[in-house]
Amino acid sequence: MMLVYGHRGAKGIAPENTLAGFRHCLEAGVTRCELDLQLSLDEQLIVFHDNNLKRLTGRRGKVKHKTAAELQHYSIRDTALNWPTTCPIPTLAQLFACCAFDHWQLEVKPLSRKKSVIAIKAIARLVEQFELQDRVTITSSSAQVLKAAQHYAPHISRGLVAEYGWLDPIKTAMRYQCSLLALNWTLCTEQRTQKAKSAGLHLSVWTVNEPKLMLRLAQYEVDSLITDFPGLASATLGNY
């Protein structure tokens, strides 16, 4: 059976990477999620996709130039969704404390070598604190982040996020001893799926929002998909 991960919580239904979105994912019966991590000025893990604050908050500046306390005064704006309540930017610690997912894909956005080490060590501390050792995979498209994860958190599983086909994503994932490959759906073929499975990789495909594509990936025997609409995916795949 193909597993379902909520993309940034439930990005198509609730403001992305917010407690409201992750709670909606759980309420839809989907107990796996994918999220994005940035580092704040005071080196806290912030659940936020963009480097810049403008798109999601309307504020100027970058996440790395603000403290976690400052960021939590900002609210995620999503006029398209017309969400009725304010949604502060959460820290990873807050999310771990509030939401009991069976598995988390934590995508660490590209960082410098030094900041990669800081982020990985911070994840490892939280994973230990919340006893999530077997329920977390650290993912990234960044070689710096994956190298840091190999060295400083070898006990936590790793995953490569692959959006482009110019590098062989399976070979690259194996280079960093990953157990998971998060593959853009445009790169997912039946042949590549079987090659990934033969290499022992869990293949997780993103971002999959159309029922026809969900069913096609199920036919390929993809291990999991990442979707903005976890309830829709769960219903679509429920009888497959």
Rank of each mutant, 00 (worst) to 15 (best):
E34C: 01
R192L: 15
F48S: 00
Q44V: 08
S157C: 08
S112R: 07
G6K: 01
W185H: 12
I170F: 10
S142Y: 09
K64R: 15
S141M: 12
D78H: 07
L71F: 15
T227I: 09
I156K: 14
V117E: 15
G159P: 02
K54C: 07
L237N: 06
L92A: 05
T137E: 06
Q129S: 10
A68W: 10
L95I: 10
C188M: 05
D50N: 04
G61R: 02
V161I: 13
T172D: 06
A153H: 10
H65S: 14
H7I: 00
Q194E: 15
A173S: 14
P110R: 01
A68E: 12
L39D: 01
A218Y: 11
S116W: 07
E163Y: 13
S224I: 04
G231V: 08
L180C: 12
N17D: 03
S157F: 10
E221C: 10
L56A: 05
A93S: 14
T86M: 12
A199V: 13
D134M: 06
H151V: 12
V205L: 08
L232A: 09
N82S: 13
T137L: 04
T172V: 14
G231W: 04
T139G: 05
Q72G: 09
I118K: 01
Y164R: 07
L39R: 00
W206N: 00
S224P: 02
Q72S: 14
K64D: 12
Q129W: 08
L56N: 01
K121M: 13
P84H: 11
S204W: 05
S224Y: 05
P230D: 04
I118F: 07
Q72L: 09
V47K: 00
R135F: 10
K147L: 07
P211V: 14
T189Y: 09
A149E: 04
V161Q: 02
I226F: 05
D36R: 00
I123T: 07
R192Y: 09
R8D: 00
G231I: 08
R8V: 00
T18F: 03
C98I: 07
W104R: 00
L45P: 00
R216P: 02
E131R: 13
A119D: 02
N184V: 06
P15N: 03
N17T: 03
A68V: 10
Y5G: 03
R59M: 09
M2C: 08
A196I: 11
T236L: 13
K62A: 09
R125A: 13
T31L: 12
I118P: 01
H103Y: 14
I46Q: 01
K109H: 05
M2I: 14
G159L: 06
E210A: 14
L146V: 06
E163G: 13
L37V: 02
P90G: 05
W206L: 02
L181I: 11
Q177V: 07
R32A: 06
G12N: 08
A10V: 04
